[in-house]
Design a protein around this nucleic acid. Structure first.
Lengths: 311, 311
DNA sequence: TATGGTGATGCGTTTTTTGCATCACCATGA
DNA sequence: TCATGGTGATGCAAAAAACGCATCACCATA
């Protein structure tokens, strides 16, 4: 959309904090970009950026204006999505922020299903936890976000929640695999492959350890679920996941899988269950594509976790 | 703001329902305007207007887009108002829709007071009743609206209300002026100068007549409060107003005025009191100037009608 | 069938935007 | 202390976009 050019440019400069860098990304010369910024500032009647030797930075007026610009861009996307939906062909671009857990199996399947129906819709998946995901909603870099409790900003509108019990992963031949429910004391000396601090699972584990005043034997810390799971094939260690990130086929009931990995739930008295929130920016009207995808998410969560689901 | 040109143009065409007429208002040639419209439609990917022999008309996509355009224009005004407020000088343009009653004395005084403090703020007063005022909020032609109950759209957010008892106006020498409270039966044979149908006062009077199954002796119908009031000097008739439209100095207590006109309240068992609502478009963030003026309105209403005021 | 209204389009002119070269400024480090 | 590499700003000529005029095609109405 032509009339948005100046606005997109300002957004870009605000992000890059440099006119020259932004110009490069936008594939124009810095001089052209500079003059556009000056023109807008002239129209506004006062500067939006502070000029520093190292680049530019938004001033207070700029902060206000950039928020407005992002609203405009997002709202235009919504209207375009809504208009194209009139013709029957659903178009649009859906931006989702969430942890590695939901990005692993849950979202790929859901996105693929959606795109089978509406192949003119494109997606953007941002791997972000908690605060960062909420910030993305605020800056309109994301339409939807998956966040573990607690919610920080009051601008996060919770649409649905799913209760997720932390599970222990291990080789099927591991002694703990015989149990139906794992207690924290069972793990005390077992080598543990732990997710990194930001993830929801880790925070729940830390709460549990704190509560029982126990420390697990952490041998590896990683932010890759795949690495952690595959490591268990080689050493008799344990790892941790929540149901939504479990590989399909690995459930708490089955005893053997192709990869010989099994999952057993923690006793929730030891390690509390986490509440996964799916939400959007409060008060925002989502583009059709995003709103419909949100419906799919809710439907899938309700179907998969009927007892632990809330809307 | 330069980047809004195309949007303003589309808004204008939508209002005029004709490219040539809009072009004239915008002081450009119809060919230039036409090409801009075509360009936008091309960017959107589908037409926004139906071409008729007599001009153009918005199609469904166009309706969606124009609403978006008006939101953009209004939101830009809000941001500009907010930015200029940063420097201490409050700028902006406040648009208010209301009946002749509030336009008569209440708003002139309030606007003048406000402009004494902030002379860079300009105002626009639209004389509109009920539905029309609500529609102006919706199309963002108005920031604030005064509406008598009932509220039609769910998009009208009531900020405050003031209960208004219908008063009877008459020459001080009129026999009814001796009474403290007027009953409907007192008026049955008195020549009545009535406001026209849309006004809040008239609707209340009609309710009262219906309820008591009485018909007043209407000799004149007008939408000018000034005409009606001045007419009473020449014929011993009665007219009707609510407190907010009463000329300062004319109250229900005083016996003489310079113009020899006095006001007496109706018994509310006969003619119910009206509820004057002041409100805005639901969910909208008003420009600073409008929001602050709204504060003034509320303050004044609370001060003037302490017992009949709700917030 | 003529008329007066509508929006669309080809073409030459005017206005705006762009890119190059260059300036002024500042922090960093030899 | 002075060179260096970074920043944004600006004069000027070339490229691009927008504009206005004249004109077309269409349609309702008289």
């Amino acid at each position: 959309m032509r009339h948005m050019t100046n606005l997109r440019f300002i957004d870009a400069v605000a992000r890059e904090k440099s006119i020259r860098k932004a110009a490069e990304k936008l594939a124009i010369t810095s001089t052209a970009l500079n003059r556009r910024i000056l023109q807008v500032e002239d129209e506004i009647g006062q500067p939006l950026f502070e000029r520093l030797p190292s680049g530019v930075r938004l001033n207070t007026a700029g902060e206000l204006f950039v928020q407005h610009v992002r609203n405009q861009i997002a709202d235009l996307a919504r209207v375009q999505s809504q208009i194209s939906d009139l013709t029957g062909v659903r178009r649009g671009h859906v931006k989702i922020a969430g942890g590695a857990d939901v990005l692993r199996f849950f979202l790929p399947e859901l996105v693929a299903n959606y795109r089978r129906e509406h192949n003119a819709v494109t997606f953007e998946l941002l791997r972000q936890y908690g605060d960062a995901a909420e910030a993305s909603l605020l800056s309109l870099d994301a339409d939807l976000a998956f966040v573990f409790a607690p919610i920080r900003t009051t601008d996060f509108q919770v649409i649905a929640t799913a209760r997720q019990t932390v599970h222990c992963l291990m080789s099927a031949s591991h002694p703990l695999a015989q149990k139906d429910v794992i207690r924290l004391r069972d793990c005390i000396d077992v080598p543990a492959v732990m997710p990194t601090g930001k993830s929801g699972v880790r925070q729940l584990l830390d709460v549990g350890q704190m509560k029982r005043n126990m420390t697990m034997n952490m041998i590896i810390e990683s932010d890759s679920f795949e690495f952690m799971q595959n490591y268990l094939i080689h050493e008799h260690a344990i790892s941790f996941q929540i149901p939504i990130s479990l590989e399909p086929g690995i459930t708490s009931r089955q005893t053997k899988t192709t990869s010989d990995i099994v999952a057993r739930p923690f006793d929730t008295d030891d390690v509390p269950a986490g509440i996964l929130h799916i939400g959007q920016l409060k008060g925002r009207v989502l583009p059709v594509a995003a709103a419909k995808f949100l419906d799919d998410i809710i439907h899938m969560l309700g179907h998969r976790y009927p007892d632990d689901f809330n809307q």
